[in-house]
Nucleic acid binder design. Structure first.
Length: 475
RNA sequence: GCGCCCUUCGUCUAUCGGUUAGGACACCAGAUUUUCAAUCUGGUAAGACGGGUUCGAUUCCCGUAGGGCGUACCA
């Protein structure tokens, strides 16, 4: 079984009932960061004991999501279902140790018990008559195996995030370990697997905090050490309510499709609930170096798209050009859009400085690159048409001919255009704006001189001529 | 119902009894500018409420309110 130099072993244990949602992604990230920070191991286990709800497609989706986020796990992913025989074996051993017992109570009996308990104002925790019964009186029927939980005293979990949390044992029931069909329940399976996988730190959502008390009882029932626990607060939607599909509870692939770079996603998710002083923008390497469990907050955090987007923009701007180009090509591929040609790639690289200053997410970079990716003739958009229309009659034609003899460098082009605007008695903006539209079809783009430089003289002039011609035909 | 957890600007958060309660996002104003974005400068904005403990509480304790999670032969 796995071990690591530092001794730290963390795990992410999703159930494959859908995609990898954002809360799960953050849990995975925290486990991964902690393992990488400590030089330990990060394991992956698929909790697929619920056969009715688990699908191979969902498992694949989870792998995909983790891979996109760059959260590589150590060794092969473990299927919890495959370990069912081991779980049953542990249940039998607990019976032998006297910390578990077979129970023949039927669903109806349990139901009835709960109803009367409720009616009498008592806690609805089921008290099985088989807990101390003579096995000789047992019917010849299927049975479940229940934990023989202590009825007195209390159980304390020393949580690394939540601190010491204590329950009176009378509030914890004899939960089912093995179902009547012999399959393990989640409670048993997690404990056995975490133990067998040598997991030292369980980092998971705090919806499991109550479970940790019951699981502690199972560890004790087997005489095993209880791993360190860290229950991290959940992520809420922008409205403070539970995450739903309407806002943040999308699969991580949805964020990939929206064009957030994985690194920005890691940064944002790490900052949601964890802090390193006032550091807001950081690389994954820094996060690994800084990450700890003591600076995880206790309160749930809301998902905020505006901040994610801002962070995304900062990461895009900080990325070096070739890395960003790679990011863009990956995005294009994921969208099943055509790959870049060599020419486009070269032009994109030259334009990158200007492109990345204007974008917060990947599609915006691509959109800004439409003057490279698009083809002549460029039909101006609504605002562009307006800008063109407001230019003095014949101006574009005069400008085009003036440009024909220009020396094609950004600074010379700027000189020519500035002289032209002075000669025409126009502000530079009055000339540059129509020029921009002629080159790109839009009113928003890189600097016009940079575009002309990247496009080259032939292509630039051709676009200007397109513009003049379409004006002549009275478009 | 019972158990457990949580509560600092609109949002994410810093603060480990003494601060003009700091930063970031968003927002507002200004600067810059061939457009947009970026950038720079400035600004608005917070300790849920009530009791304690203490020379002194955002910080420690109790209660109230609000929110969340759990209470399955789901995970």
């Amino acid at each position: 079984m796995p071990s690591s130099p530092s001794g730290v072993v963390t795990r992410f244990a999703p159930s494959p009932t859908g995609y990898l949602h954002i809360g799960g992604a953050r849990t995975a990230l925290f486990n991964w960061l902690y393992a990488r920070h400590t030089g330990g191991k990060f394991l992956l286990r698929i909790e697929d004991t619920d056969r009715a709800r688990s699908t191979p497609e969902a498992t694949e989706k989870i792998f995909e999501g983790l891979r996109w986020l760059g959260l590589d796990w150590d060794g092969d992913a473990i299927s919890q279902f495959d370990r069912a025989p081991r779980h049953a074996e542990v249940a039998r051993e607990m019976i032998a140790r006297g910390t578990a017992y077979p129970c023949w109570s039927t669903q109806e009996e349990i139901e009835a018990f709960r109803e009367t308990a409720k009616a009498e104002g008592r806690p609805p925790l089921f008290l099985s008559p088989w807990r101390d019964a003579d096995p000789a009186t047992a019917p010849d029927a299927p049975f479940v195996v229940r934990l023989k939980a202590p009825r007195d005293g209390e159980t304390t979990v020393s949580d690394l995030v939540q601190g010491d949390v204590t329950w009176k044992n009378e509030t914890l029931d004899d939960l089912i370990l093995l179902r009547s069909d012999g399959t393990p329940t989640y409670m048993l399976a997690v404990v056995v697997d975490d133990h067998d996988m040598n997991v030292t730190h369980i980092i998971r959502g705090d919806d499991h905090l109550t479970n940790s008390a019951r699981q502690t009882l199972i560890y004790r029932g087997m005489g095993w050490d209880v791993p360190a626990m860290a229950h991290i607060p959940l992520i809420h939607g922008p409205d403070g309510k539970k995450l739903s599909k309407r806002h943040g509870a999308l699969g991580v692939d949805a964020y990939r499709d929206m064009g957030y770079p994985a690194e920005a996603m890691r940064n944002y998710l790490a900052r949601l609930g964890w802090s390193h002083g006032n550091d807001e923008v950081f690389t994954t390497e820094q996060a690994i170096g800084w990450f700890d469990l003591t600076h995880i907050g206790k309160a749930p955090a809301r998902f905020d798209y505006a901040k994610l987007e801002s962070l995304s923009g900062q990461h895009i701007r900080a990325m070096d050009d070739s890395a960003l180009l790679g990011e863009l090509e990956g995005f294009l591929a994921a969208q099943n859009r055509p790959a870049l040609t060599d020419t486009e790639r070269a032009q994109m690289l030259r334009a990158m400085t200007g492109l990345k200053e204007r974008a917060k997410i990947l599609p915006q970079v691509l959109d800004m690159a439409s003057f490279i990716l698009g083809k002549r003739p460029f039909a101006p958009d609504a605002a562009g048409a307006k800008a063109l229309a407001s230019a003095p009659a014949g101006m574009m034609e005069k400008l085009t001919s003036r440009l024909r003899n220009a020396n094609w460098t950004p600074s010379d082009l700027e000189t020519v255009v500035r002289e032209f605007s002075t000669d025409e008695g126009l502000g530079l903006g009055k000339v540059a704006q129509p020029l921009r539209v002629a080159l790109s079809g839009r009113t928003v783009s890189l600097g016009v001189f940079d575009m002309m430089d990247i496009l080259g003289q032939t292509e630039s002039l051709a676009r200007l001529e397109d513009c003049v011609n379409s004006a002549a035909t009275g478009a």
